[in-house]
Design a protein around this nucleic acid. Structure first.
Length: 273
DNA sequence: AGTGCGACCCGAACGC
DNA sequence: TGCGTTCGGGTCGCAC
């Protein structure tokens, strides 16, 4: 499940592989992937555009083109693969970008959950989805005061709020559990009951956890194949997520799994009170 | 406005 | 030669 570290890894890989390529042709096999423009508009605007940079905002990959930003969200299982134009289109390949060089980049997504937006560069940051995003983990504006202000009205459990992309971007279900464990915060704790020290810990361990994961190329659990998607190694460093029934690495208490806001949540009932 | 929940998807895992 | 059901994951839209 691509969260920020996986998306960052994929973005860097894309930059290595397709920087300066010029789009010659676009084929779409599952139109629902394209969110804010018609299929015809999507194709006609993209043809002739050059990949002049690759960027990332939260879990969104940004293809920086001459006149547009192409945004791509992988949701759970989206990935990019490189093919030749003649190669048969496989079952879960939904969008294909053919470049002048003959290389073809294909978007593959088993569950069809991923989405793409095509935005004019001019006002892209004033438009959905970019205008709804909170702070990057390394933004200097991310302080305990900022979090306290956002948290003070929220009665939801912190586990749910730490996933809220309008506050801090990039944290998904896996890293949320890890960050709360390192911060010694119970995932069910009401968000408005957290103090300044808790917020400092959340910020500190969000940065630390995501940095470590990026350095290891992200996390690979469940469905990710090793081919051209991301195959990271951070899964070996997970402390509580997916560790139901195992011992807490700090105190040896058995890690338990509960559901919070409908999501599987792992924590140590002794360390996180 | 804040909150809760189903919908979107489909392969894997599970239960019998 | 099993088959029907449940689960999970991020986000949106709708109902309260």
């Amino acid at each position: 499940m691509p969260e920020l570290p996986e998306v960052e890894t994929i973005k860097r890989k894309l930059k290595d592989n397709i920087l300066n390529e010029v789009i010659k042709e676009v084929n779409i096999y599952y139109p629902n992937i394209i969110e804010n423009v018609s299929i015809d508009e999507f194709k006609s605007k993209l043809i002739g555009q050059q990949i002049i940079d690759m960027d990332r905002r939260g879990k969104w990959i940004i293809f920086v083109l001459n006149d547009y930003y192409l945004l791509s969200h992988l949701r759970m299982e989206g990935k990019y693969v490189y093919r030749k134009h003649d190669d048969e289109v496989e079952k879960h390949e939904h969008v294909a970008f053919l470049f002048e060089s003959g290389l073809e980049l294909r978007y593959r997504d088993t569950r069809k959950f991923g989405r793409m937006y095509l935005l004019d560069k001019e006002d892209a940051f004033n438009k959905k989805p970019l205008n709804e995003l909170g702070l990057e983990p390394w933004d200097n504006s991310l302080t305990s005061d900022y979090l306290l202000d956002k948290y003070k009205t929220k009665k939801l459990p912190i586990k749910s709020v730490i996933l809220d992309q309008s506050i801090i971007v990039g944290i998904g279900n896996i890293y949320a559990d890890e960050i709360l464990f390192k911060s010694h915060i119970n995932p069910l704790c009401k968000t408005n009951e957290l103090n300044s020290n808790d917020c400092d810990n959340i910020i500190k361990y969000t940065k630390e956890t995501l940095e470590d994961a990026i350095n290891l190329g992200g996390t690979t659990i469940r469905s990710y194949e090793s081919t051209e998607g991301v195959h990271g190694n951070f899964q070996d460093n997970l402390l509580v997520h997916n560790h139901e029934g195992y011992s807490c690495p700090k105190c040896n208490t058995t890690i338990i799994k509960i559901r919070v806001g409908g999501r599987g949540t792992y924590y140590c009932p002794n360390c996180q009170k």
